[in-house]
Nucleic acid binder design. Structure first.
Length: 418
RNA sequence: CGGAGUGUAGUGUAACGGUAGCAUUCGUGCUUUGGGAGCAUGCGAUCCGGGUUCGAAUCCCGGCACUCCGACCA
C-alpha cells in the first residue's frame, strides 16, 4: 500500500473528548473513527488489524472442528420470550425496534436463542452430536454508559462459539479443546504471557465460568493472579476461593485486567426452554448439553493498544500489525532514493510481505512521527545518507533496536521476523 | 440510572451583553529536506429551537450531543 493513496490522515494531537488511551491513539493514527459514544468505525488500517485478530480466532476455532456461520443481527422475539430473556427487567442491554407492521424485534447482543432455535432443524439424533458452531459478528448492547474507547462499546465485534454435546462428559472433552484453542489465540496475538485463565462467577449450570483476563493498568477488572501457573481468580470470587485452583498456591497477587474472552458451561439452560432435544441410543429424548465461548476481537485490539503502545504511538505485534514493514522514503525528489524505495516496495509486494510505503512528499520528521504513531513492526528508511552505507537500516518499533542488513539478506530477515 | 461538567473553523483554544480573535490543519507561491521547518497569501466556526434585550458565543428556558465519577456489565 502506498501511503500517498491511504484515505486516512494522522493527527498530531488527540481529541479533547476522547480520554481513553486506546481510542485516542487509534483515532490519531487513523485506525478508527468515533461516530457516537461507544460506537466506532474501523478505517482501512484499523480494519486490517481487526481482521487479523478475527482470523487468528477463526483459524483456532476451525482447528478444533467448529464450523463458521453467520447469524442475523435482527432477532425474532419469540425464542427470547421462551427463554425468559426478552424482558428489559431481566436483560437490560437490549436494543429493540419494530418492523413496519409493528412486530417487535431485537438487535443481537448474543445468539444462544436464535442458534438453539436454528439447531432444532439439524440435531435429531445422538449421531448428530457433538457439533459446534461459531460466528464473528457485530453485537449490539445498549450499555448505560459506554467508556474506555473500543474496550466497552455499544456496538462491537465478537467471536461467539457454541458447542452442542450429548451430555456433560462429552461437553467436557470439547471444553478442554476450546481452552487449548484459546491459549493459542492469545499466544499468537502476542499477549499470551500476560493473559490469565481466570475463575469467575458462573452461570446456572456450573459453579464457575472461565475468563481470559489480560493484565492492563487501565483494565476494568481486578483479578488475583497465581504466577506459578498463569491462573487467576476474579475479585468477585476471592472470598470463596483463597488459593490457586490449579496448584494450590496461596500467594495471589492483585492486578487490574481486561476480560478478552469468556467460556462457560451452558448445560441445558437454553435447550430445555427452547426444546433442543435429541434421541439417544435407547430411543430416549434428551436435552442437548451446551457450552458457550466468547472472544472480543475489537476489545482485544483495544487491549493490545493499551498495553503495548508508548508515548510515540501504537506498537503492534507482527501477527496483528496492519503491515509488517514500513518503507519510509526520505527525500522523494532524489532519484536514487525513489528508485530504491520503489524497487524494495516491488520486491516485498511480490514476495507477499505486507508493506506500507511512505511515498509522500513530506519532511523526514513528519514521516518518522507518523511511522511511530502507526506502529508497524519494522521500519526501513531509504535516504541518500542511508544508501551510501550499502546496507539497509531496519528499526524495530517495539524497542527502537536497529539492524543493518545487506540487500541480499533483507528478504530472509523480514520473512523470518516474527 | 444517580451525580458533576462541557458544547466556538477539521483540531486545540480566546472574546465584559457591543467588529467572532489566535494557533494548527488545509489551498496557493517561494525557500527548505534524517524527527511534525520558514516566509507570504487565501479558505474555514459560535450544537439545535425558543425567550430576554436596541443588540446574545455570552443571560434564561427546552432539546440534543459529548466527557467524567458512581451504580451496572451474560
Amino acid at each position: 500500500m502506498r501511503q500517498s493513496m491511504l484515505l486516512t490522515k494522522t493527527r498530531k494531537e488527540g481529541l479533547k473528548d476522547e480520554v481513553s488511551k486506546n481510542a485516542n491513539l487509534l483515532i490519531r493514527a487513523g485506525f478508527i473513527n468515533k461516530e457516537m459514544a461507544g460506537v466506532y468505525s474501523y478505517l482501512p488500517l484499523g480494519l486490517r488489524t481487526l481482521n487479523k485478530i478475527s482470523n487468528i480466532a477463526r483459524e483456532e476455532m476451525n482447528k478444533i472442528g467448529s464450523q463458521e456461520l453467520l447469524l442475523t443481527a435482527l432477532q425474532d422475539k419469540e425464542p427470547w420470550v421462551k427463554s425468559g430473556r426478552w424482558s428489559d427487567d431481566v436483560y437490560d442491554i437490549w436494543f429493540k425496534t419494530k418492523l413496519k407492521n409493528g412486530t417487535e424485534i431485537g438487535l443481537g447482543s448474543t445468539h444462544e436463542e436464535p442458534l438453539v432455535t436454528l439447531m432444532k432443524n439439524h440435531i435429531r439424533s445422538y449421531k448428530d452430536l457433538p457439533v459446534s458452531a461459531y460466528q464473528i459478528q457485530t453485537k449490539f448492547r445498549n450499555e448505560v454508559r459506554a467508556k474506555a474507547g473500543i474496550m466497552r462499546g455499544r456496538e462491537f465485534l465478537m467471536k461467539d462459539m457454541y458447542s452442542f454435546s450429548k451430555d456433560e462428559k462429552e461437553h467436557e472433552i470439547f471444553y478442554e479443546k476450546a481452552k487449548v484453542a484459546y491459549s493459542h489465540i492469545f499466544k499468537r496475538l502476542g499477549i499470551g504471557d500476560r493473559t490469565y485463565f481466570t475463575y469467575a462467577l458462573g452461570g446456572t449450570f456450573s459453579k464457575y465460568s472461565h475468563e481470559y483476563q489480560t493484565l492492563a493498568i487501565n483494565g476494568e477488572d481486578t483479578i488475583y493472579c497465581c504466577d506459578e501457573c498463569m491462573v487467576a481468580i476474579n475479585k468477585e470470587l476471592i472470598d470463596e476461593i483463597k488459593e490457586c485452583p490449579s496448584c494450590k498456591n496461596k500467594k495471589l497477587i492483585e492486578r487490574k485486567s481486561v476480560e478478552v474472552g469468556n467460556i462457560f458451561k451452558l448445560g441445558i439452560k437454553y435447550s430445555e426452554p427452547l426444546g433442543l432435544i435429541y434421541i439417544d441410543e435407547k430411543g430416549a429424548k434428551k436435552f442437548v448439553f451446551m457450552g458457550c465461548y466468547g472472544f472480543g476481537p475489537s476489545r482485544t485490539m483495544g487491549t493490545i493498544t493499551e498495553i503495548l503502545s508508548d508515548e510515540k504511538g501504537l506498537v503492534w505485534p507482527v501477527s496483528v500489525a496492519p503491515f509488517k514493514v514500513h518503507i519510509v522514503e526520505i527525500s522523494s525528489e532524489n532519484k536514487k532514493v525513489r528508485e530504491t524505495s520503489e524497487k524494495l516496495y516491488d520486491i516485498f509486494t511480490k514476495n507477499g510481505v505486507e508493506v506500507l510505503y511512505d511515498d509522500r512528499d513530506a519532511r523526514a520528521g513528519e514521516k518518522f512521527n507518523d511511522s511511530d504513531l502507526i506502529g508497524i513492526p519494522l521500519r526501513i528508511v531509504i535516504s541518500e545518507k542511508g544508501l551510501e552505507k550499502g546496507e539497509f537500516e531496519i528499526k524495530q518499533r517495539i524497542d527502537g533496536k536497529v539492524f543493518n542488513i545487506k540487500e541480499k539478506e533483507l528478504m530472509d530477515f523480514v520473512n523470518k521476523y516474527n
